[in-house]
Design a protein around this nucleic acid. Structure first.
Length: 303
DNA sequence: GACCAGGAGTTGA
DNA sequence: TCAACTCATGGT
């Protein structure tokens, strides 16, 4: 049993595993009974929440994945929540309502492919696409009497034809994924982990199929850039309706974000929330999805 | 049948 | 620099 979010002072904080897995940052997970199974690269990981505080972790392969790293328990969530949660009433409320939410530290390759697939579609369909890729190019694994297919390595996916990927349900994204595999194989992942935000973003933007938003997601969820502030349709609505005066003119949720506008708005939000803006973004994303704007409660929070 | 979904590339002004 | 268009596709 591994304690989740054990602070330096020994206090253990609850993590809501389902809330975290279901927050749109990761797609290949399954709930079976009380257990959660996560496809992490070429591994299947079983996560068992226990009173919201402890998990049991088993893996299908000997390769050890540190659950404390996976759930970013090395982040001081109290300090983070304190630093972002007092910026305004909305983020304060979101932090309060999604107290068990955490960011995860994903495998960069799986994260890259996942968010290229996540353009202009729903989370449900992203899962279908990724499952198709796993079934076609990953390894079949029997684990706990259940059958899983792991995520293929870059080299395993290198041989995929565009037709193969289309068949997996990727549609027009197939050629982007195909190109991205080659790009990734040419990249030095360590330098992406160590590099600064601007530098790494520009490298990622060089991959076909990766724009501002996808680059931000990859950096936030797998490359240690916690200041990344991805803006999807939900976050854009939140900004347009709640942070309009912070971001400034020209903010209209009915208008699509141009790349330049995206950069300006995202940069402003990074400045506003600071080095943990990515956590703020994740809280706001969950809040916006859970309490849709049909629910007027979001309007009643005064800054 | 239109519209939406954790968007991005291309084109033309 | 930006709006308009296109790219697949399942769900509502």
């Amino acid at each position: 049993m591994i304690p989740l979010a054990r602070r330096m002072d020994g206090i253990i904080d609850a993590i809501d595993v389902e809330q975290t897995l279901d927050s749109g940052q990761v797609f290949l997970w399954y709930k079976r009974g009380r257990s959660y199974y996560l496809i992490y690269s070429e591994n299947v990981i079983r996560i068992e929440p226990c009173h919201g505080q402890l998990v049991l972790v088993h893996e299908s392969k000997p390769m050890y994945i540190d659950v404390e790293r996976l759930f970013r328990l090395d982040d001081d969530i109290h300090a983070i929540n304190h630093s972002i949660g007092h910026k305004d009433a909305l983020i304060g409320e979101a932090v309060k309502r999604f107290k068990g939410l955490r960011l995860m530290r994903q495998d960069p390759f799986q994260c890259l492919i996942s968010f290229i697939c996540a353009t202009n579609t729903s989370i449900t369909r992203v899962r279908c696409m990724l499952e198709g890729i796993c079934k076609r190019f990953g390894n079949k694994v029997e684990f706990d009497g259940l059958t899983f297919h792991t995520f293929p390595s870059p080299k395993a996916l290198q041989d995929a034809s565009i037709n193969d990927l289309v068949w997996c349900g990727l549609g027009y994204r197939a050629r982007f994924v195909k190109q991205a595999v080659y790009s990734y194989l040419d990249m030095d992942v360590e330098s992406l982990l160590d590099g600064g935000y601007d530098e790494v973003r520009d490298i990622l933007l060089g991959i076909e199929g990766v724009g501002n938003k996808v680059a931000d997601c990859i950096m936030l969820f797998s490359l240690e850039k916690l200041e990344s502030f991805p803006i999807d349709v939900w976050i854009w609505r939140v900004i347009a309706r709640y942070y309009r005066d912070i971001v400034g003119m020209g903010v209209d949720e009915r208008v699509r974000l141009s790349p330049n506008m995206y950069r300006r708005v995202s940069s402003t939000m990074r400045g506003y929330f600071g080095r943990y803006a990515g956590y703020a973004q994740q809280y706001l994303y969950c809040y916006a999805r859970a309490y849709t704007f049909d629910n007027p409660s979001i309007y009643t929070i005064n800054r």
